[in-house]
């Protein structure tokens, strides 16, 4: 089909770039792939070789610690259901990928978010890039990732990282920018260095927002499960895919519900950590402070 505006062969250029990268940077990408694969395999190995009952108890305790006893019950029931569906091994494979993808995404997102918060120009550059990462259909970059990384967990993890980084960056930037200017001035006025202001004032005060970003990163990572399946990563995504191919509604529903349960669990736990006043840890914290105060009072008396 002819075009009105002279045809721009952007697609060919990008393809050339990808070809060039596969030719000249294959060593680098193989290295990245092998590191990511090792990480995923290692975590998978641990999860698959721990007794299921013990894992369920651990998950429930985690929920109790972060969020309270209701979340703990929910977690226990949820993971029991996953096991009842026969999806527990797949769920653990998926969990391993999500843990690796989320951790890497967060490790990248938070420093980038801090940079964007402190430097207007950096922010102006980073924002459109984030828009790109979030809105470009995943299938478009899936192919180049496949070329460069190959089939398997590593490709899935990298595609997931691309998709899930933006909210981590955005919420970190927002959180730091929203810290009251007087607080920052207070730090400066007492002679704190920029690094001391960042670490002692801005990051702690931005923590709720940063943790909300972490939560969003994990949620987006979960939403990539099926795409991960397409790239050949084992887990719940592949179960969903194969149910599609074999027109097996039952397996599809079971695998899909397992994804939902995993998502709810991860959301509640990470959301709990972003709030000060929920969960067992805050109860313990309160108790400790009360004791300290009582001790101080007896000291004074």
């Amino acid at each position: 089909m002819s075009t009105v505006v002279p045809r721009i062969h952007l697609g060919e250029w990008i393809a050339d770039v990808v070809n060039w990268l596969t030719d000249h940077w294959s060593g680098f990408f193989d290295g990245v792939a092998s590191i990511v694969n090792h990480l995923v395999d290692g975590i998978q190995h641990v999860l698959m070789n721990t007794p299921i009952v013990l894992l369920i108890v651990i998950f429930a305790l985690l929920a109790l610690w972060a969020r309270g006893w209701k979340a703990a019950v929910l977690a226990a029931v949820g993971f029991c259901l996953i096991d009842a569906f026969g999806e527990f091994p797949s769920a653990m494979q998926t969990l391993a990928q999500i843990i690796v993808a989320s951790v890497l995404a967060i490790v990248i997102a938070i420093p980038v978010g801090i940079l964007a918060a402190r430097n207007r120009r950096a922010s102006a550059v980073i924002k459109p890039v984030l828009d790109f990462m979030q809105t470009l259909p995943a299938y478009v970059y899936l192919l180049p990732v496949l070329f460069l990384i190959g089939l398997g967990s590593a490709g899935a993890v990298l595609a997931t990282i691309i998709f899930s980084i933006p909210p981590g960056v955005r919420l970190t930037e927002l959180g730091i920018r929203q810290v009251d200017g007087e607080m920052v001035e207070a730090g400066q006025a007492f002679g704190a260095t920029p690094k001391e202001v960042l670490r002692g004032i801005q990051i702690p005060l931005a923590m709720p927002s940063i943790m909300a970003g972490v939560n969003q990163v994990i949620m987006l990572a979960l939403s990539m499960v099926v795409v991960a399946g397409i790239v050949g990563a084992p887990g719940l995504g592949q179960d969903v895919l194969s149910s599609l191919q074999s027109l097996d509604v039952g397996v599809g529903v079971e695998a899909g519900l397992s994804v939902v349960i995993l998502a709810i669990f991860l959301d509640r736990v990470t959301d709990g950590f972003s709030k000060r006043e929920v969960g067992l840890r805050s109860e313990i914290d309160k108790l400790r402070r009360r004791q300290a105060r009582a001790a101080a009072a007896t000291d004074a008396a």
């Binding site: 007087e182 607080m183 207070a186 006025a189 007492f190 002679g191 004032i201 702690p204 005060l205």
Partner: peptide
Amino acid sequence: LRQARRDHISMVFQHFALFPH
């Protein structure tokens, strides 16, 4: 300048600017 602030000149703020954490 930071050293001068540490040694010679401190500040009290209108909205207190205490660190809540």
